[in-house]
Design a protein around this nucleic acid. Structure first.
Length: 210
DNA sequence: TGCACGATGAAC
DNA sequence: TTCATCGTGCAC
C-alpha cells in the first residue's frame, strides 16, 4: 500500500483515501477504533431510504463510546440482549430508546469482540428531513430512524452513510461527552467531536463546548 | 416481580 | 428547573 493510501491529509487518520462523494461507506470505514470513526464521520452524509423516500443529513457532531471499560458505554454492563450488537461486526446500527421516548442512533465500530460505537448527535439537514436535526433524539425522528433498524447493516441496508465533502481537520473541535456525568473520569475524556461553529451542533453541546 | 434510572427534548 | 415515559439491568 502506498503511503498516500494510508494517511490522507484531509482525514488525518491511518486509513484509505476518502471515498468519492456520494459513495456508500464500506465495512473498512467502520472497522477501526471508535475515536477514529467519530472524527472521520464528520462531514459524511447519513441517509435513510424508506418506501422510496430519501431523508438525509450531513453529520456535524459525534461521540465515541470506546470499550467495555468506558463507564459511559452501554457495553460496560457486559454482553446483554441490548448491548450484543456492539460486540458484533462493525458497520451495524445500534438504535436504542432513551428516557422512554427518544431514540438514539449509533454505528458499531472496531473489531468483533471489542464493543464500541459512535453516537450521531447532530446533522445538518440535506434532504427530506421531518423537523430539526440538532440533537440525537431529534435527528432520528427527522430521518424516520427507529428501533426497527437496530442491528441493520449500514453496508447493505436501507440506512447508510455516504461520503460527503472532505473536512479539514482544523474545523474539528472536541470536548467531553454530554449527559454522562455518572461515568467518573470517563465523563471528562474528550470524546465528543463537532464541526466548529456549525449552527446545527446540539444545544447542550454549544453551551458545554469549546 | 419490582424498581431506579437514563448517551433527551420541550415547556415553564 | 421540571417532567414526560418505558426498556433495561439489577436487587430482592
Amino acid at each position: 500500500m502506498p503511503p498516500s493510501a494510508r494517511l490522507h491529509p484531509l482525514v488525518g487518520v491511518s486509513h484509505g483515501p476518502p471515498a468519492p462523494r456520494g459513495a456508500r461507506l464500506g465495512r473498512d470505514f467502520y472497522a477501526r477504533p471508535a475515536v477514529d470513526v467519530a472524527r472521520a464521520l464528520l462531514g459524511q452524509v447519513l441517509v435513510h431510504e424508506d418506501v422510496g423516500v430519501r431523508r438525509a443529513g450531513r453529520i456535524v457532531e459525534t461521540e465515541a463510546y470506546v470499550s467495555a471499560d468506558d463507564r459511559a458505554c452501554h457495553a460496560a454492563k457486559g454482553r446483554t440482549a441490548r448491548t450484543e450488537v456492539m460486540f458484533g461486526e462493525a458497520g451495524r446500527a445500534y438504535v436504542y430508546l432513551i428516557y422512554g421516548m427518544h431514540e438514539c442512533f449509533n454505528v458499531v465500530t472496531d473489531v468483533e469482540g471489542h464493543p464500541s460505537a459512535v453516537l450521531i448527535r447532530a446533522l445538518e439537514p440535506v434532504e427530506g428531513c421531518l423537523g430539526k436535526t440538532d440533537g440525537p433524539g431529534k435527528l432520528t425522528r427527522a430521518l424516520g430512524v427507529t428501533r426497527a433498524l437496530n442491528r441493520a447493516d449500514l453496508v447493505l441496508g436501507p440506512l447508510w452513510i455516504e461520503a460527503g465533502e472532505p473536512v479539514d481537520p482544523r474545523e474539528i473541535a472536541r470536548g467531553p461527552r454530554i449527559g454522562v456525568d455518572y461515568a467518573g473520569a470517563w465523563a471528562r475524556r474528550l470524546l465528543r467531536f463537532w464541526l466548529r461553529g456549525n449552527r446545527w451542533v446540539s444545544a447542550p453541546a454549544t453551551t458545554r463546548g469549546r
